[in-house]
C-alpha cells in the first residue's frame, strides 16, 4: 500500500512538471498550485431509505486529498482549471437496519436475504481524480469553481459485518436465522471486487488566497455514478460518494 502511494505521488509530481514548463511559456494568464486537504462525507444512498432506521456511529477516516492544479484565465473574470488529485473517499459507519436487502459471503458461500439488526460498514476508495472546472474570480483573492470530475480507483474496499439481529433468507418470508454478536456468530461480507473502477461526478469549490502564495480551498464533490455497477443487486440502493473537502493550497 505504502509503495503504491509512493508511486502515485511520483506520478502526481511528474504530471505537474510539464505544467510548470507550460506556465513559463504561457505567462501570467497561467497559474499552478499544489493542494492538500481532508475530506468528510459518505458513500450512501440518495435519501435515507426506510429500511435504514438509524445511523448509530460515524467515525473519521483517513480521507486525505493531495494534488496539483493548473488554471488558465481568459483575462476577464472567467477561466478554466484542471488538476490531478490523489484522494481517499472513505467511510466507517454503524447503522441499524430493518429488512434491509443484503448478502453475506465467505469464500464461495453466499447467504442472501433481508437483514434486521446492526451493520458495521467500511468503505475505502483511493483514487486518482481529474477535475475540469470553470472558474470565476471575485476580486483578487477569491475564485469560485464548478465542473465535472472523473476518478480512477486504485484501491477499493467495501466490507463490513452484520451482527446482533436476524436474516430472512431469500425474502422476508424465508427462514429466519439469528445472527449473533461474537466473531463466530456474526456475518461478515465483502464486495470490494464488485465496485466500479471509474467514478464520475460534479464538484463546486472555492479558493481563497489568504496570505501571499498561501490559500485555503473548500470543495463539495457529488458522485453521479453509483459505486457499484447497475447489475449489482446485492446492496439494496445505489450508493453515491458525496464528500466535502477543506484544505490548503500553495500557488506558484
Amino acid at each position: 500500500m505504502k509503495k503504491s502511494l509512493f508511486y502515485i505521488a511520483s506520478i502526481l509530481v511528474a504530471a505537474a512538471m510539464p505544467s510548470v514548463v507550460m506556465g513559463g511559456i504561457l505567462g501570467d494568464n497561467f497559474g499552478l498550485s499544489l493542494r492538500a486537504g481532508y475530506s468528510i462525507g459518505g458513500t450512501s444512498p440518495m435519501g435515507l431509505p426506510p429500511t435504514i432506521s438509524s445511523i448509530d456511529a460515524f467515525r473519521l477516516t483517513p480521507s486525505f486529498c493531495v494534488g496539483a492544479d493548473a488554471s488558465y484565465s481568459t483575462g476577464s473574470c472567467w477561466g478554466i482549471a484542471a488538476g490531478l488529485h490523489l484522494e481517499n473517499k472513505a467511510m466507517n459507519t454503524d447503522v441499524t437496519v430493518r429488512s434491509y436487502h443484503m448478502e453475506m459471503n465467505q469464500g464461495a458461500t453466499h447467504i442472501s436475504g433481508v437483514f434486521t439488526g446492526h451493520v458495521h460498514q467500511e468503505v475505502t476508495e483511493w483514487m486518482l481524480t481529474l477535475p475540469l472546472q470553470a472558474t470565476y474570480s471575485v476580486g483578487d483573492k477569491l475564485t469560485l469553481r464548478a465542473g465535472p470530475y472523473v476518478s480512477l480507483l486504485v484501491k477499493k474496499e467495501f466490507k463490513g459485518v452484520a451482527s446482533d439481529g436476524y436474516l430472512r433468507e431469500g425474502d422476508p418470508t424465508g427462514p429466519r436465522i439469528t445472527i449473533g454478536d461474537t466473531p463466530e456468530t456474526e456475518a461478515p461480507y465483502e464486495f470490494s471486487d464488485d465496485m466500479n473502477r471509474w467514478q464520475f461526478g460534479v464538484g463546486i469549490g472555492l479558493d481563497w488566497q489568504v496570505f501571499g502564495p498561501l490559500g485555503v480551498t473548500a470543495d463539495l464533490n457529488w458522485g453521479l455514478t453509483p459505486v457499484f455497477p447497475k447489475d449489482f443487486k446485492t446492496v439494496e440502493q445505489p450508493l453515491y460518494p458525496v464528500y466535502g473537502t477543506l484544505g490548503a493550497r500553495y500557488t506558484f
Partner: peptide
Amino acid sequence: CIALTACKKEEFKNPECD
C-alpha cells in the same frame, strides 16, 4: 450530510408475515 440528501424519509412498513 445525509439529511441533505434525505428530502423525505418514507415510513418503514414491515414486510414480515409470520
